[in-house]
Design a protein around this nucleic acid. Structure first.
Lengths: 235, 235
DNA sequence: TTAGATAGTGTCTTATCGCCACTTATGCGT
DNA sequence: ACGCATAAGTGGCGATAAGACACTATCTAA
């Protein structure tokens, strides 16, 4: 327990193996998907797990920046939305010993990272409803389920899921997205009333051109990003 | 980056100084209070901070159990309610280097730990509204504020604050507690409607004896503890 | 010009919430 | 013993919000 102030030695403390992982969601083909990475090293080599890893003490200024760095490496871009989910830690979740993971969940538009992901083989979008916890590394199956439940709450009470859409989107697209996340249909009028009351969207003035009546295009208000925002990809 | 499976050496990894801290709330004299501990060692020796510390890898099975152990050491009992708040981590929050703290918040009835705390000098209940962030160790002032905000949400939408009361309590006591937490008054009828609809309380059949009409005594349903519960102190 | 398709609105009904007065049940002072 | 002060608990009205669903609006394609 000798403790000289300046020279800090990690061996003075009973410190667990600490990592940062993220559950990155997107929606494609009307299905909710999550980004998984095939592990190259033990433990769980060859299995698929969440993107993440060790903190780089010289690079990462805080936990969120660490999570963003890892996601950027795997997808090519920083996600427009990220938030801390929870931390899991215990003696038995990693065969190497006591470990802790700080988990974030994040959203990204599928189109914005498709090219980068298509170019590698060890990173894939996987449908959430088709995942089996026992096929995943560590306790990542359970963590994904927790993240999904949190995202479902967000879909019911906020417009956070909008960050899984391109910058400009229609009301109908947003509703369809929310429906995919929560797994049921929503009333059109009620949905619109709720979103309008929140006043978190800006009418861009533009409209879609397609079969049927044109739909107004909206984007998320910058102030709507009261939660910590990451990077502004809009013009 | 050499990685032999079995022998695990902490120095192979860039691991931060990881600790577990808790924000333990109670209510006494119609004021919301939080448990603080005076630090004996550097950094911030002499300053007051949250109860917590390093994980004991041989003792603690997971993060929550670690938090409970620390609280038991300081108060003499395990809190009837505890939940993870968030994790803070960064390069500059601890002068010793990159550090992470996993923070829990918890509730306890003041009467249940008063004797133990009165017997020591380095543990105190401190009024939340009278705290100044700059007088506290690390970023603990900011963390307490976040915990308070979370508790306020719980007071508006759940009966979690009930765990800061003795096992049996009246509706009026519960309402007064919620009012202290959120800092405003609540409508009696609306409050009762909300609590009754949730069906999380059991009528004990007993009543108070005092001036005025006797009040029914309730306790929290065991199933009301859908959130992870800690220890059942009731008979 | 019209049918089909999709966007967006009007409006009735139903549930919920804030509000406040009223009733109920006790202790206590005289 | 009686009524008054005190605190618990309820009734009920009007405002607001939420669900349901038919209706209108505006485009493309043939």
């Amino acid at each position: 327990m000798a403790k000289s102030p300046a020279p800090y030695n990690i061996h003075d403390y009973d410190v667990p193996l600490t990592t940062v992982d993220s559950v990155l969601f997107t929606v494609h083909d009307e299905k909710l998907k999550v980004l998984l990475v095939q592990r190259g090293n033990a433990p769980f080599a060859g299995k698929w797990g969440l993107p993440g890893g060790f903190i780089e003490q010289g690079t990462d200024v805080d936990l969120e920046m660490c999570a963003i760095r890892k996601l950027k490496e795997k997808t090519g871009i920083a996600p427009p939305y990220i938030e801390q989910l929870l931390s899991q830690g215990g003696a038995s979740r990693d065969p190497r010993g006591w470990s802790v993971t700080i988990v974030f969940y994040a959203l990204v538009a599928h189109v914005n990272c498709e090219p980068h992901i298509d170019s590698v083989t060890d990173v894939q979008w996987r449908e959430v409803s088709a995942l089996s916890a026992k096929d995943l590394a560590f306790d990542h199956g359970q963590i994904i389920q927790l993240a999904h439940e949190r995202l479902q709450q967000k879909a019911l009470y906020s417009i956070v899921p909008a960050y899984a859409l391109p910058n400009e989107f229609t009301f109908t697209e947003l509703q369809a997205l929310h429906e995919v996340i929560i797994g049921t249909t929503l009333e059109k009028k009620s949905f619109r009333r709720r979103i309008e009351k929140a006043e978190l969207l800006i009418d861009t003035g533009k409209s879609t051109v397609a079969r049927g009546r044109p739909a107004k295009l909206y984007k998320v208000k910058p102030e709507g990003r009261a939660y910590r925002f990451v990077r502004n990809l809009e013009s």
